[in-house]
Design a protein around this nucleic acid. Sequence first.
DNA 1: TTTCTGACA
DNA 2: TGTCAGTA
Length: 159
Amino acid sequence: MKYLFKKEQLKFGFNMSQYVFRIGEIESMSGISARQLRYWESKGIIMPLEREDEQSGRIYPFKMFIRIMMIKTYLDQGNTLKNAVIRVDETQNFMRPTHDILSSAFHGLVYEEDMVYIDLGDFDTDGNQRLLAYQKKSGENQKVSYRIVDKEDLEESDE
DNA sequence: TTTCTGACA
DNA sequence: TGTCAGTA
């Protein structure tokens, strides 16, 4: 088995933090008026980014756009603003550990013949074994399977 | 042009 | 929340 690449060799990751939006952009993307966004801010529901330059216009990170869209979704379902925010906070609170665990669990991609595995890191405390996850090809069955391999069976990638 | 704050409805 | 005024 051989590494296609390891996490630290990943060259084409998307760091969404580089995408920020002005209030007018959020307004046209979300349908939430700028007036409304400023009102939400006054209630502590959303927060613009701290700007390093001395410009006064608000800028929002991509994550805040997601939050705004989630609030809007609950609002459109008939929730009050207060309840919409409570629901979004609940959702974000349980999504965070899920996201954190999944992103830190990813250690790289390994292949063997035509099979690709995700390296999920050390399986044992000694670090002699690696846990790999994969899906069987073809089948409609999307179940994830796991495989434990000895670390010495894993070759580094070529580069 | 866009955004900001404050005021009034 | 929408809208308007007067700015930066």
